[in-house]
Design a protein around this nucleic acid. Structure first.
Lengths: 337, 337
DNA sequence: CCTTGCCCTGCAATCGATTGCAAACATTTT
DNA sequence: AAAATGTTTGCAATCGATTGCAGGGCAAGG
């Protein structure tokens, strides 16, 4: 009897009955209005607004074999870096009528989740993976999966399209800047050794360092590790202390700088520091951090465009590199004589 | 002919054929195994794993009239504060088998989006709104909408369940702390005047201030406004400068402190500063910021639990308050004599 | 041997929108 | 005037899983 007296929500057929046409016609008015005669179309639109009709997504998705969702998989939603990227991505997807589903690749425990939960064409039309360590080996070319791309990070040895900063060039910019200032002993606070970003940035830094001496400090992109690097730097005999330090993340750079300042070292007089990422806060520090900017929203936007193109069946580039930029601020200067 | 030769993906009926049972039985094995005889169940499970069957969500959702999604609506995804909340929320939802859909309430232009796009039972089973200024007036009790709750912020005059920090108490903690140190002239860097968080915190601050003198600085929670507050403070004649300042967000507190340090003011000797939120970075500054902690992940988790309860049809509390905590660090001290 | 009742299982309707096909009608061409 | 072409619309099948209802099988009780 539901057919006679719609309970709360109008269905396509309710609109049709009201407009005196078939459900097919209503559907066409809504999706390809050009196919329907002017007069009919108007009657239908009137009925639509009178009934307050709203489409049922589940029904449409079932019929059209799509979901209207793109899922972003990230290791740490709480990281503000990813947040900015999601922001750009979400907006771009919304413009195209897609929703953004976000999910962690890590359990609370720190172990990787079963990703196949999301690798499912009935859940998402496309996937943007932002965790270079996700267990994704065997999934590269399976035709029963929705399209997958990686953003920011990528997985070595797996053939997935990539969108990311030109990390190597970013590191080159940083170290070249320090070299240009006259530094010939440069400290590097890196990321986890097996992290692809770390590897690329390290390579870029080494290239640009040329004959300069390099001293490495272990790090993992977190502030805790930046702090440890400060302790390590302070523990060095004065003549082994690099006069300039390039941290592979702004968070490490901040904590490093804070640790040194606490010990009475002044920046940039005694020590130059340069970071990586250009998170919003660092431009408001005193002194303001010189750093390498990643266009975060732009990365998100670009990733969205590319996954949408793939969903639309187009060819997409294997690697998309975005340009880093040197943000010259107050923490770098020529070494003291 | 699709019925005879499944193309890529196994359907329920394919599994059924393979196991020699009906689709209904397969469905029951998967959802209520207790209803099915042991032997049948095993045969079905075998067929399931042999075919690599994966459920089609659109079909199930259509039939069950649900979506398996909860949508979080926020004004600014790029804000790390919200990111942490989403983190807690996403994990809790995942545990219950729900997906987290995120969306901005603001357009690129800064105008509010048409929220009804998400106010749709066919898109989400529940909604967590985190924007106190969203145009939500008329939507409070409509039965054709999925359940809505607000988190962090809320909308005045609209009867929606709320989950948030006890902002008033947080502000009281902050100001009481300054009073206990002996400050009798306190500066407040507030939020936008019509923001509910601002109003609550202001009320709390005033209560705790008692007879102390209060000087207000306009703000909007951003670092830019913190910087402007610094300029305003510096522009005051010395005897009108409050010796302690409570900023309603850590970002403002950071920028404020940075601006003063740049002008040669030392913290906390010349001026005490206390923030609000306890974003991760502030504990790594030098000096480390004293602030009021919001349990961000906990807020997210709690919001998730409550919206899930509502979805399950349970009664839920109208207001859920979480406890703030004073994080005593290095930026507050007794005023100089 | 016949009921009665329980346990399993299958049938078939249902969720709501989309779309290939063809009918019905209008318009143009020959 | 007949034929060809074009436009508009409806019919009915389809997407894939769920579930109320009823029937078959079997055991226990009379």
């Amino acid at each position: 009897m539901r057919n006679q007296s719609p309970p709360g929500r109008a269905r396509l057929s309710d609109v049709a009955r009201r407009a005196g046409v078939s459900a097919a016609t209503v559907s066409r008015v809504l999706s390809r209005p050009g196919l329907v005669a002017e007069a009919t179309r108007e009657a239908v639109l009137k009925a639509v607004s009178e009934t307050g009709y709203r489409i049922n997504h589940a029904a449409r998705n079932l019929r059209k074999q799509r979901t209207g969702c793109v899922v972003a998989l990230l290791p740490n939603l709480a990281n503000s870096f990813f947040a900015k990227i999601l922001d750009g991505m979400g907006r771009e997807l919304a413009r195209a009528g897609y929703d953004l589903l976000v999910a962690d690749t890590l359990e609370d425990s720190g172990r990787h989740t079963r990703l196949d939960r999301f690798l499912d064409p009935s859940r998402a039309d496309g996937i943007v993976l932002m965790d270079g360590l996700a267990p994704f080996d065997d999934l590269a070319g399976r035709p029963d999966l929705p399209p997958v791309i990686t953003a920011c990070e990528w997985i070595e040895g797996v053939e997935l399209p990539r969108v990311m900063l030109d990390n190597r060039k970013g590191a080159e910019l940083a170290v070249t800047h320090l070299r240009d200032l006259g530094h010939d002993h440069i400290g590097l606070i890196g990321g986890p050794p097996d992290n692809v970003l770390h590897k690329d940035r390290l390579a870029g830094a080494q290239t640009a360092a040329g004959s300069a001496r390099i001293t490495g400090f272990p790090g993992d992109f977190t502030m805790q590790s930046g702090q440890r690097a400060a302790e390590a730097w302070l523990a060095l005999p004065a003549r082994d202390r690099p006069g300039a330090v390039f941290a592979f993340s702004d968070e490490m750079a901040c904590a490093f700088m804070s640790g040194l300042r606490r010990a009475g070292i002044s920046v940039p007089q005694d020590l130059s520091i340069i970071g990586f990422d250009d998170i919003e806060l660092v431009s408001h520090l005193t002194p303001a951090l010189t750093t390498i900017r990643q266009p975060k929203r732009e990365i998100g936007r670009k990733a969205a465009q590319i996954i949408l193109d793939r969903i639309a069946g187009q060819e997409i580039p294997t690697v998309t590199l975005l340009e880093p930029e040197l943000m010259l601020r107050e923490t770098t200067a020529a070494p003291q004589r």
